[in-house]
Design a protein around this nucleic acid. Structure first.
Lengths: 278, 278
DNA sequence: GCGAAAATGGAATATTCGTTCTATTGCTGG
DNA sequence: CCAGCAATAGAACGAATATTCCATTTTCGC
C-alpha cells in the first residue's frame, strides 16, 4: 500500500442511501477498471441490491464475485452483507405497512367506499411513479425557458383539465408571475389578450376540447410559443405546440386522480418563477 | 397418511399476492393452533416476508421455525424459499427502478426543474400513502350516506381548494349527480340555492377561507348537513360540520400536490353516485 | 525492459439459513 | 382409560451464499 497520502478510505460505512450515493459519486473516476464497472452497475441499479446475491450483482456488472466484494470494502463496508443491510432497511422503511393497509381496505369488497379510496390511491401512486420514470427532461427544460421568457402566461384547460389550470393560476399568482386563466366564464374567451411576447400553456387530454385547440391555434397565428401538457400520444398537438410535455395518468373507472399532472405542473410553475427572478 | 377424503391441499402455489391472501382467508379458522398463529402473523405483516428469514418470521409469530415451514407447505409452496420468491417479485415489480430514477432526478441539483419534479413526486407519493394509512372509514361511510341522501350537493372550495371543488363538480356532472359549484363568480354566492334536503361538501385547509366558513355557517343555520374535507387538526370545523374527513397533505415548499385530497374526493364522488342509483 | 506493487480471477472456506427427520406431546374417539 | 393419530419442537442435515486467500496477470515508475 502507498505510504504518504492515504486516499480517504473510510472505516465507517454509509448510514443512509444518500450517503452511499455521495461516496459513490466521490469515488467516480479514480477506481480501477473492475471496481469502476461495479460502481457503474450499482449506481444504475441501486434498488436491486436489497434483493440480489453477490453472484447476481457480479453477473450484472460483468465481473467476478470477488470484485464485488472488494467494491463493498472500498465503499467502507465490511462486506456485501453489511451493504445489503443498508438497502434492505431503506426498502422496508419505504413501505412500512402500506401494502398491507391497502389490501385491507380493498378486502372490504367492491363498491365499498374504502375500497374505492384504495383503488384511487393505487392509481395515483402508479401515475406519480410513471411520471418519475418517463419524465422528458429536455422538454421540461425547454418549457421552463419558454415560459420564463414570456411577459404573460396564458393558461388553457377545460373540463377535467380545468382543475389543473385553475391551480396553476393560483400558484402563479402566489409566486408573482403574471398569468391569465382562460376559464370561459360568460362565454367569452380572453382571446384579445394574447399579445406579442406572451406564451400559452395548454393543459389538455384526449379527446382534446374544442376551446383549447382553438386557443392554441390562435396563439400560433399570432406567433406566440405554445407549451402543451398532455397525455401520450400527443398526435394532434405535435404540429402546433412548440414544446410537448406528456404525462401518463392511470385512471380508475372513468376518472383520473390527476396526481401526476399536478405534480408536473407545480414543478413547472415553481421552476418558471425561480428562473424569472434571476 | 389418511386414506380417503383428502383435504383440498393444493399442489399449485399461489401465483400472486392476491391469490395468497385469498387462500389465507379460506384457511382461516380450520387450522391447528401453531399454524393459526403463523397465519395471523403473516396476514398482518405481509410486507415483511420478502425481507425476513424463517427464523425472524417464526419469532414474530411466537412459534418454532419448523411450524413456519409447515405453514408454507399448507399454503401450497414447497417451502419458505418459494413463498418468499413470490413476495420478492411483488416488491421489486412495485418499484422497478423508481427509487433510482428519483435519486437521479434529484442529483441534477437544487433548483433544476427535474429536481423539483422529483420533490413534488415524493411529496405526492407520501401524501397518498398517508391517506391509505390514516383513512377514517367510519367518517367516510358517514359522508357517503349523508351526501347520497341529499337532493342537491353544494360544493365549496376556494383558493387552493378550488381545483378540488371544480373537479368534483365535473365528476358529479358526469355521474349525473346534481351538484352546484359555489365559485364566487360575479361576487355573488349561490346562497339562496341552499334548500332543505340539500347538503354541503366543503373543501378547505387551514387557514380556512372566509367564504367557505360563511357558507358552512349558512348551511348550518338552515339545518343542512355539512361534510368537511380538510386537514388535521380540524379544530375550527369540529363544532360546525357533521362529518369531518381529514387528509394529511405533505407540501413541498409552499405548495401541495393535492394528490391525496383528490383521490379521496374522487372516491367519495363515485361512492355517492353508486349509492344514489340503488 | 525490468521490478515492484496493485489488480484480478478462481478456487477454497466459513457461515448462514432453509429443510428434513424423529422423538415426544397432546388430542380425540371408542 | 387407552389406542391411534395429528401436532409439535428441537436437533441434525444440506444447500446456498458470503468471504477469504493465493497464484497469476497487469500496470506503472525507473
Amino acid at each position: 500500500m502507498p505510504r504518504g497520502e492515504a486516499p480517504p478510505e473510510p472505516r465507517v460505512p454509509p448510514q443512509t442511501v444518500e450517503e452511499f450515493r455521495d461516496r459513490l459519486h466521490a469515488l467516480n473516476g479514480q477506481l480501477p477498471r473492475r471496481l469502476q464497472q461495479c460502481a457503474d452497475h450499482v449506481a444504475t441499479h441501486l434498488d436491486r441490491i436489497a434483493l440480489s446475491t453477490v453472484a447476481q450483482v457480479a453477473q450484472g456488472a460483468g465481473v467476478p464475485p470477488s470484485a464485488v466484494m472488494r467494491f463493498c470494502q472500498i465503499m467502507g463496508f465490511t462486506g456485501y452483507a453489511e451493504m445489503q443491510r443498508l438497502f434492505r432497511k431503506a426498502l422496508s422503511h419505504a413501505a412500512p405497512d402500506y401494502a398491507t393497509r391497502l389490501a385491507n381496505l380493498k378486502a372490504g369488497g367492491v363498491g365499498q367506499p374504502a375500497t374505492l379510496v384504495a383503488e384511487f390511491v393505487e392509481a395515483g401512486r402508479q401515475s406519480i411513479e410513471a411520471l418519475a420514470r418517463d419524465l422528458n427532461e429536455t422538454a421540461l427544460n425547454q418549457a421552463v425557458t419558454t415560459l420564463a421568457q414570456a411577459r404573460t402566461i396564458h393558461l388553457a384547460g377545460f373540463r377535467r383539465s380545468f382543475p389543473v389550470a385553475s391551480y396553476l393560476a393560483y400558484v402563479f399568482d402566489k409566486l408573482g408571475v403574471p398569468a391569465v386563466l382562460h376559464d370561459g366564464v360568460a362565454g367569452l374567451g380572453h382571446r384579445s389578450t394574447l399579445q406579442p411576447g406572451d406564451a400559452l400553456l395548454a393543459i389538455t387530454f384526449a379527446p382534446y376540447s374544442e376551446e383549447t385547440l382553438a386557443l392554441v391555434a390562435q396563439a400560433r397565428d399570432r406567433g406566440l410559443p405554445v407549451v402543451a401538457l398532455t397525455d401520450p400520444p400527443a398526435s394532434q398537438l405535435a404540429g402546433v405546440a412548440d414544446t410537448i410535455l406528456t404525462v401518463t395518468e392511470i385512471d380508475f373507472g372513468a376518472f383520473r386522480s390527476l396526481s401526476a399532472v399536478i405534480a408536473l405542473a407545480l414543478a413547472l410553475a415553481v421552476a418558471v418563477a425561480a428562473r424569472r427572478e434571476t
